[in-house]
Design a protein around this nucleic acid. Structure first.
Length: 415
RNA sequence: GGACAGGUGGGUGAGUUGGCUGAAACCACAUCCCUGCUAAGGAUGCGUAGGAGUAAUCCUACCGAGAGUUCGAAUCUCUCCCUGUCCGCCA
């Protein structure tokens, strides 16, 4: 959630910054007015409540002194009516306010470039040269005809389209990759956690997937529970409603989870192959930091993911997302795109975001600085999407005879 | 899933004939004093959120969540959630 108080005080500045995400200024104006109205209505209610409290305390006194209670009681009964009306009014304003506030995206950083879509993203750097082949490199689904690593048909039989089954060395490679990634991240100071793949509504509100993006989630029928779209949800929410101490920070965690997405807005896109599945494995990085440290940790996370790809010998580039391409909760995002020779293009394989205090405000994650409680910064990033890494290895390590070499660092994980 | 017992501040734990209890006491923690050495003693402070005020301070809400009864609820009623124990079931 954005800082409503800041919106009251620096309206123009915030409205201006949110232009990058194409947010209508009238919506913000509405939000500001509602917040001021709420303050006003709340003051009215609190005055009435104070009166009720004070006068209620007179009852035992009157009784002791033998005074008449009836008139006082009548007076307070009347006041009680006023209170319930004031309460109703306040609740209405509050609901309107929170409905809008929960739907306003995070404010982009100063450094985020202007732009409407991925065309306007800014390339930061390329890492490793793209490999050359003395034959025509195949796409992973063609390659797979020889390997039989991925069984698309039977994935569909078991579930539906956009599900697949891994077999043979494909299945083993997936597990090797997950293990390797976790070990790599641990060597960079990220502690491993294992979390539920199903979370409740509160958690999804905390990280920003709800209430706005419910269509992207698989909901469990009859329960207030959802399949997680990313480990970011359970791992960040580990600290929801908590007040941490300064010396606990930064908290740096890594977790492997399956991720589940409806891909509601992606009809027809990437229907072939394993690029866009309803279920995929991902190793995630999550950091909880002080505001001062969050830029530094962000860079560490980007390096971690980039170095991981480098260690696998996979050429990639780092891209700074423009305002229009930035996600709902992110103030700043760097995507990492890996080179896929078969497709002859770079494809997203990781996305690292600093949400600043946006999620922390929603999830009430704070830390103690002296006597004050300060919102932490939360950051998350993939390191990496396992399925896409598998594809990248297939396409980059393919031989002219259709076999696939295993990257050196993974060999010990494949024994 | 069934039966019973519970859910109070960082922890332990008082508080049921409803009313100076937002919450005793103890522990932990922080600062200071004393003392001096890996101990002891003393003083003070120590929940969250919002609002008013330069500030001291004051007001409101919160004792698992929500609703209700009442002039007034941590204390009574209802619903839900969670924890423990026993039973059932199960990797």
């Amino acid at each position: 959630m954005i800082d409503i108080k800041a919106l009251q005080n620096n309206f123009d500045e915030i409205a201006n910054k949110l232009q990058k995400k194409k947010i209508d200024e009238s919506l913000l104006q509405n939000l500001k007015e509602l917040s001021l109205e709420l303050k006003e209505k709340k003051a009215i209610l609190e005055t009435l409540q104070a009166e009720q409290n004070a006068k209620s305390k007179l009852f035992p006194v009157y009784q002791k002194e033998g005074k008449d209670i009836a008139s006082l009681k009548a007076e307070l009964n009347e006041n009680k009516q006023k209170i319930s009306i004031a309460q109703e009014i306040m609740r209405e304003v509050e609901e309107k306010l929170s409905a809008i506030a929960m739907g306003v995206p995070n404010i982009p950083d100063e450094s985020v470039p202007l732009g409407v879509d991925e065309e306007d993203n800014q390339e930061l750097k390329k890492v490793l040269d793209i490999p050359t082949f003395d034959f025509e490199p195949k796409e992973h689904w063609d390659l797979d005809a020889d390997q039989a690593w991925i069984d698309f048909e039977r994935g569909v039989k078991l579930s539906k389209s956009r599900f697949s089954v891994l077999k043979n060395d494909g299945a083993r490679l997936e597990r090797a990759l997950s293990n390797y990634m976790l070990d790599f991240n641990r060597s960079r100071g990220f502690e491993e956690v294992s979390v539920p793949f199903i979370t409740n509504e509160e958690s999804l509100k905390g990280t920003g997937q709800l209430p706005k993006f419910g269509d992207d989630l698989f909901k469990i029928e009859g329960e207030n529970l959802y399949l997680i779209p990313t480990a970011e949800v359970p791992v960040t929410n580990l600290f929801r409603d908590e007040i941490l101490t300064a010396d606990e920070l930064p908290i740096k965690l890594t977790a492997y989870t399956a991720c589940f997405r409806k891909e509601a807005g992606s009809a027809g896109r990437d229907t072939r192959g394993m690029i866009r599945q309803h279920q995929f494995g991902k190793v995630e990085l999550v950091s909880i930091t002080t505001p001062e440290d969050s830029d530094k940790i962000f860079d560490e996370m980007v390096s971690c993911a980039s170095d991981l790809l480098k260690s696998l010998g996979l050429a990639h580039k780092l891209v700074l997302l423009c305002g229009g391409d930035l996600g709902f909760s992110a103030a700043k995002t760097v995507d990492i795109e890996v080179w896929l020779p078969g497709q002859n293009r770079y494809r997203e394989i990781s996305s690292i975001s600093n949400t600043r205090d946006f999620q922390a405000r929603r999830a009430k994650i704070r830390y103690k600085e002296g006597k004050k409680n300060i919102l932490v910064h939360t950051l998350n990033g993939s390191s990496l999407a396992v399925g896409r890494t598998l594809i990248a290895i297939m396409e980059n390590y393919q031989k002219s005879d259709g076999t696939i070499e295993i990257p050196e660092v993974l060999k010990e994980y494949m024994r």
